[in-house]
Amino acid sequence: MTTGAVTESFPESSEPLLPTKRRWEGEDGGGDEAAFHEFNGASFAGAVFNLSTTIVGAGIMALPATMKVLGLVPGLVMIVLAAFLTDASVELLMRFSRVVGAPSYGAVMGDAFGWWGRRLLQVCVVVNNVGVMIVYMIIIGDVLSGTSSGGEHHYGVLEGWFGTHWWNGRFFVLLVTTLGVFTPLACFKRVDSLSYTSAISVALAVVFVVITAGIAIVKLIRGQIPMPKLFPAVPDLASVWELFTAVPVLVTAYVCHYNGTR
Protein backbone atom coordinates (compact mmCIF):
# COMPACT_ATOMS: atom_id res chain seq x y z
CA MET A 1 0.00 0.00 0.00
CA THR A 2 1.42 3.39 -0.96
CA THR A 3 1.37 6.50 1.15
CA GLY A 4 -2.02 8.26 1.23
CA ALA A 5 -3.70 5.34 -0.55
CA VAL A 6 -7.37 4.73 -0.15
CA THR A 7 -7.91 2.15 2.57
CA GLU A 8 -11.54 1.43 1.66
CA SER A 9 -13.58 1.84 -1.48
CA PHE A 10 -17.26 2.75 -1.45
CA PRO A 11 -19.61 3.15 -4.42
CA GLU A 12 -20.57 6.78 -4.97
CA SER A 13 -24.23 6.05 -4.22
CA SER A 14 -23.49 4.34 -0.89
CA GLU A 15 -20.86 6.76 0.43
CA PRO A 16 -21.96 7.78 3.96
CA LEU A 17 -22.36 11.48 4.68
CA LEU A 18 -21.02 11.09 8.22
CA PRO A 19 -17.74 9.29 8.99
CA THR A 20 -17.81 5.62 9.94
CA LYS A 21 -15.18 3.38 11.47
CA ARG A 22 -12.26 3.81 9.12
CA ARG A 23 -8.53 4.01 9.68
CA TRP A 24 -6.63 6.50 7.55
CA GLU A 25 -2.87 6.18 7.51
CA GLY A 26 -1.07 9.44 6.80
CA GLU A 27 2.51 9.95 5.78
CA ASP A 28 3.79 9.29 9.26
CA GLY A 29 2.22 5.84 9.41
CA GLY A 30 -0.90 6.70 11.36
CA GLY A 31 0.21 9.61 13.52
CA ASP A 32 -2.43 12.19 14.35
CA GLU A 33 -5.24 10.45 12.48
CA ALA A 34 -4.60 6.87 13.59
CA ALA A 35 -6.98 7.16 16.54
CA PHE A 36 -9.87 8.05 14.25
CA HIS A 37 -10.94 4.42 14.00
CA GLU A 38 -11.91 4.55 17.68
CA PHE A 39 -14.73 7.01 16.93
CA ASN A 40 -17.85 5.71 15.20
CA GLY A 41 -18.83 9.05 13.67
CA ALA A 42 -20.84 11.99 14.92
CA SER A 43 -24.59 12.04 15.33
CA PHE A 44 -26.53 13.73 12.56
CA ALA A 45 -28.00 16.38 14.88
CA GLY A 46 -24.59 17.02 16.45
CA ALA A 47 -22.99 17.46 13.02
CA VAL A 48 -25.73 19.87 11.94
CA PHE A 49 -25.54 22.02 15.06
CA ASN A 50 -21.73 22.06 15.21
CA LEU A 51 -21.45 23.06 11.56
CA SER A 52 -24.25 25.63 11.90
CA THR A 53 -22.71 27.35 14.90
CA THR A 54 -19.35 27.41 13.10
CA ILE A 55 -20.93 29.24 10.17
CA VAL A 56 -23.50 31.36 12.02
CA GLY A 57 -21.37 32.65 14.88
CA ALA A 58 -20.47 36.07 16.18
CA GLY A 59 -19.67 37.03 12.59
CA ILE A 60 -23.31 37.99 12.05
CA MET A 61 -22.83 40.79 14.61
CA ALA A 62 -20.06 42.29 12.47
CA LEU A 63 -21.90 42.13 9.15
CA PRO A 64 -23.74 45.44 9.75
CA ALA A 65 -20.36 47.14 10.21
CA THR A 66 -19.22 45.83 6.82
CA MET A 67 -22.42 47.11 5.23
CA LYS A 68 -21.69 50.51 6.74
CA VAL A 69 -18.22 50.51 5.20
CA LEU A 70 -19.07 49.04 1.79
CA GLY A 71 -22.56 50.39 1.30
CA LEU A 72 -25.75 48.43 0.70
CA VAL A 73 -25.18 47.31 -2.91
CA PRO A 74 -21.49 46.26 -2.75
CA GLY A 75 -22.09 44.78 0.72
CA LEU A 76 -24.85 42.47 -0.52
CA VAL A 77 -22.78 41.49 -3.56
CA MET A 78 -19.78 40.63 -1.36
CA ILE A 79 -21.93 38.57 1.03
CA VAL A 80 -23.39 36.53 -1.85
CA LEU A 81 -19.94 36.14 -3.45
CA ALA A 82 -18.40 34.95 -0.17
CA ALA A 83 -21.26 32.47 0.22
CA PHE A 84 -20.66 31.00 -3.25
CA LEU A 85 -16.90 30.75 -2.68
CA THR A 86 -17.43 29.05 0.67
CA ASP A 87 -19.91 26.58 -0.82
CA ALA A 88 -17.54 25.73 -3.69
CA SER A 89 -14.51 25.30 -1.42
CA VAL A 90 -16.37 23.15 1.12
CA GLU A 91 -17.78 20.98 -1.68
CA LEU A 92 -14.27 20.58 -3.08
CA LEU A 93 -12.92 19.66 0.34
CA MET A 94 -15.64 17.09 1.02
CA ARG A 95 -15.28 15.51 -2.42
CA PHE A 96 -11.53 14.98 -2.12
CA SER A 97 -11.78 13.85 1.50
CA ARG A 98 -13.96 10.98 0.26
CA VAL A 99 -11.56 10.22 -2.59
CA VAL A 100 -8.51 9.80 -0.35
CA GLY A 101 -10.47 8.45 2.62
CA ALA A 102 -9.16 11.24 4.85
CA PRO A 103 -11.16 11.96 8.02
CA SER A 104 -10.15 15.60 8.52
CA TYR A 105 -9.13 18.83 6.80
CA GLY A 106 -5.54 18.27 7.92
CA ALA A 107 -5.51 14.78 6.43
CA VAL A 108 -6.61 16.12 3.03
CA MET A 109 -3.87 18.74 3.18
CA GLY A 110 -1.37 16.04 4.13
CA ASP A 111 -2.34 13.93 1.14
CA ALA A 112 -2.07 16.91 -1.24
CA PHE A 113 0.89 18.87 0.17
CA GLY A 114 2.69 16.45 2.47
CA TRP A 115 3.72 16.78 6.12
CA TRP A 116 4.65 20.47 5.91
CA GLY A 117 1.37 21.38 4.23
CA ARG A 118 -0.64 19.69 6.94
CA ARG A 119 1.36 21.32 9.72
CA LEU A 120 1.02 24.74 8.07
CA LEU A 121 -2.75 24.29 7.90
CA GLN A 122 -2.90 23.29 11.56
CA VAL A 123 -0.92 26.39 12.53
CA CYS A 124 -3.30 28.58 10.51
CA VAL A 125 -6.33 26.98 12.19
CA VAL A 126 -4.81 27.59 15.63
CA VAL A 127 -4.02 31.23 14.79
CA ASN A 128 -7.55 31.71 13.43
CA ASN A 129 -9.15 30.16 16.52
CA VAL A 130 -7.02 32.20 18.90
CA GLY A 131 -7.87 35.39 17.03
CA VAL A 132 -11.59 34.60 17.01
CA MET A 133 -11.44 33.75 20.71
CA ILE A 134 -9.87 37.14 21.46
CA VAL A 135 -12.70 38.79 19.53
CA TYR A 136 -15.24 36.77 21.52
CA MET A 137 -13.61 37.84 24.77
CA ILE A 138 -13.79 41.49 23.73
CA ILE A 139 -17.48 41.12 22.82
CA ILE A 140 -18.29 39.37 26.10
CA GLY A 141 -16.46 42.02 28.10
CA ASP A 142 -18.25 44.85 26.26
CA VAL A 143 -21.69 43.26 26.60
CA LEU A 144 -21.47 42.17 30.23
CA SER A 145 -19.16 44.78 31.78
CA GLY A 146 -19.56 47.74 29.43
CA THR A 147 -16.96 49.75 27.61
CA SER A 148 -15.59 53.28 27.60
CA SER A 149 -14.81 55.30 24.49
CA GLY A 150 -14.37 59.00 23.88
CA GLY A 151 -14.72 59.77 27.57
CA GLU A 152 -18.18 58.15 27.67
CA HIS A 153 -18.93 54.88 29.46
CA HIS A 154 -21.50 52.49 27.99
CA TYR A 155 -22.98 50.27 30.68
CA GLY A 156 -22.96 46.52 30.26
CA VAL A 157 -25.72 44.08 31.14
CA LEU A 158 -24.41 43.31 34.65
CA GLU A 159 -23.74 46.98 35.40
CA GLY A 160 -27.23 47.91 34.24
CA TRP A 161 -28.86 45.24 36.39
CA PHE A 162 -26.80 45.35 39.58
CA GLY A 163 -24.79 48.56 39.44
CA THR A 164 -21.01 48.90 39.45
CA HIS A 165 -19.26 46.34 41.69
CA TRP A 166 -15.88 44.62 41.72
CA TRP A 167 -17.38 41.28 40.70
CA ASN A 168 -18.93 42.59 37.48
CA GLY A 169 -15.78 44.38 36.36
CA ARG A 170 -14.22 43.41 33.06
CA PHE A 171 -11.26 41.45 34.50
CA PHE A 172 -13.32 39.34 36.90
CA VAL A 173 -16.07 38.61 34.36
CA LEU A 174 -13.58 37.47 31.73
CA LEU A 175 -11.66 35.40 34.29
CA VAL A 176 -14.82 33.56 35.38
CA THR A 177 -15.92 33.11 31.77
CA THR A 178 -12.55 31.67 30.75
CA LEU A 179 -12.22 29.28 33.69
CA GLY A 180 -15.88 28.36 34.04
CA VAL A 181 -17.05 28.20 30.43
CA PHE A 182 -14.29 28.19 27.81
CA THR A 183 -11.84 25.89 29.59
CA PRO A 184 -14.32 23.02 30.24
CA LEU A 185 -15.62 23.22 26.67
CA ALA A 186 -12.07 23.15 25.28
CA CYS A 187 -11.29 19.96 27.23
CA PHE A 188 -13.73 17.75 25.32
CA LYS A 189 -11.98 15.09 23.25
CA ARG A 190 -14.39 15.24 20.31
CA VAL A 191 -16.19 18.12 18.64
CA ASP A 192 -19.42 16.09 18.70
CA SER A 193 -19.51 16.59 22.48
CA LEU A 194 -20.28 20.26 21.84
CA SER A 195 -23.55 19.50 20.06
CA TYR A 196 -25.74 20.76 22.93
CA THR A 197 -23.86 24.02 23.38
CA SER A 198 -23.84 24.44 19.60
CA ALA A 199 -27.63 24.04 19.57
CA ILE A 200 -27.90 26.77 22.22
CA SER A 201 -25.59 29.00 20.17
CA VAL A 202 -27.71 28.59 17.05
CA ALA A 203 -30.87 29.34 19.05
CA LEU A 204 -29.31 32.49 20.52
CA ALA A 205 -28.21 33.58 17.04
CA VAL A 206 -31.82 33.26 15.87
CA VAL A 207 -32.99 35.25 18.91
CA PHE A 208 -30.41 37.94 18.11
CA VAL A 209 -31.62 38.19 14.51
CA VAL A 210 -35.28 38.34 15.58
CA ILE A 211 -34.63 41.06 18.17
CA THR A 212 -32.50 43.09 15.77
CA ALA A 213 -35.10 42.80 13.01
CA GLY A 214 -37.86 43.78 15.44
CA ILE A 215 -35.99 46.89 16.59
CA ALA A 216 -35.24 47.86 12.99
CA ILE A 217 -38.90 47.46 11.96
CA VAL A 218 -40.13 49.57 14.91
CA LYS A 219 -37.61 52.33 14.18
CA LEU A 220 -38.47 52.19 10.47
CA ILE A 221 -42.17 52.65 11.22
CA ARG A 222 -41.39 55.60 13.50
CA GLY A 223 -39.14 57.13 10.86
CA GLN A 224 -36.04 56.98 13.09
CA ILE A 225 -33.83 55.16 10.58
CA PRO A 226 -32.08 57.27 7.92
CA MET A 227 -31.70 56.04 4.36
CA PRO A 228 -28.63 53.74 4.21
CA LYS A 229 -25.94 54.62 1.73
CA LEU A 230 -26.00 52.46 -1.37
CA PHE A 231 -22.30 52.81 -2.25
CA PRO A 232 -19.18 53.54 -0.19
CA ALA A 233 -17.87 57.06 0.18
CA VAL A 234 -14.29 57.26 -1.16
CA PRO A 235 -13.07 60.85 -0.67
CA ASP A 236 -9.37 59.95 -0.42
CA LEU A 237 -6.85 57.10 -0.64
CA ALA A 238 -7.24 56.23 3.06
CA SER A 239 -10.92 55.51 2.44
CA VAL A 240 -9.97 53.00 -0.27
CA TRP A 241 -7.81 51.02 2.17
CA GLU A 242 -10.65 51.13 4.71
CA LEU A 243 -12.81 49.13 2.29
CA PHE A 244 -10.47 46.15 2.65
CA THR A 245 -11.27 45.91 6.38
CA ALA A 246 -14.57 44.31 5.39
CA VAL A 247 -12.86 41.34 3.71
CA PRO A 248 -11.70 39.44 6.86
CA VAL A 249 -15.11 40.00 8.47
CA LEU A 250 -16.94 38.46 5.51
CA VAL A 251 -14.49 35.57 5.20
CA THR A 252 -14.56 34.78 8.93
CA ALA A 253 -18.36 34.91 8.97
CA TYR A 254 -18.49 31.95 6.56
CA VAL A 255 -15.51 29.87 7.70
CA CYS A 256 -16.51 26.31 8.58
CA HIS A 257 -14.02 24.19 6.65
CA TYR A 258 -12.12 22.72 9.61
CA ASN A 259 -15.38 21.24 10.97
CA GLY A 260 -16.70 20.11 7.60
CA THR A 261 -14.93 16.73 7.44
CA ARG A 262 -15.05 15.75 11.09
Rank of each mutant, 00 (worst) to 15 (best):
L250S: 02
P16Y: 02
V48H: 05
I225Y: 12
D111K: 15
Q122M: 15
A83P: 00
Y254E: 03
V173H: 06
W241K: 06
A233E: 11
P19E: 06
G59Q: 00
T53K: 07
A82G: 05
G180I: 04
G26K: 00
L72V: 14
N128S: 15
T197E: 12
M109Q: 10
T212L: 14
W161F: 11
V251K: 00
D142T: 09
R98I: 02
E242H: 10
V209Y: 07
E152D: 13
A216Q: 07
Y136D: 02
F96Q: 06
R222A: 11
K229M: 11
P228R: 08
G106M: 02
L81C: 09
F231V: 11
P19Q: 08
S9R: 06
C256N: 15
G223D: 05
G31V: 02
S198I: 03
Q122Y: 02
G106T: 02
G4Q: 08
E159Q: 12
E12G: 02
Y258L: 13
L63H: 06
M133P: 08
G169S: 10
V209S: 13
N259F: 03
L92M: 09
G59Y: 00
P103K: 01
M94H: 13
V176N: 07
V191Q: 12
V125G: 05
P184S: 09
H154F: 05
F44P: 09
V176W: 07
L76Q: 08
S97A: 08
R262K: 04
F39G: 05
F208C: 15
M133G: 15
D236K: 04
H153A: 12
S89C: 05
L194G: 04
A199M: 12
E152F: 13
V255C: 11
S195G: 09
I55R: 10
K21N: 12
A83Y: 06
R22P: 00
E152Y: 07
R98N: 06
L121Y: 07
W115L: 14
E33P: 00
P226D: 14
F171G: 13
S13Q: 07
V173K: 06
A35W: 11
F44W: 14
G156D: 02
Y136N: 02
L72Y: 04
S145M: 05
G117R: 04
V143E: 03
W241E: 15
P16I: 03
P11Q: 07
C124L: 10
I140T: 07
N50H: 10
G29T: 04
D87K: 15
A88M: 12
K189G: 14
L204G: 10
R190Y: 12
S13L: 01
C124D: 10
G151S: 01
V249P: 03
C187L: 15
I79T: 10
V234R: 09
G101D: 00
K189V: 13
V108Q: 04
V251F: 04
L194P: 06
F39S: 04
A47M: 12
Y155L: 15
G29H: 10
I200K: 12
D111N: 12
W167D: 10
A102F: 03
F182C: 07
R95W: 03
A58L: 07
F10V: 00
Y155A: 15
H153M: 10
W161Q: 14
V132K: 11
C187F: 14
T183L: 14
V255M: 14
I140V: 11
M133I: 09
G57E: 01
M227N: 11
P232K: 06
H257W: 01
S14V: 02
S149K: 03
S89A: 13
V191G: 13
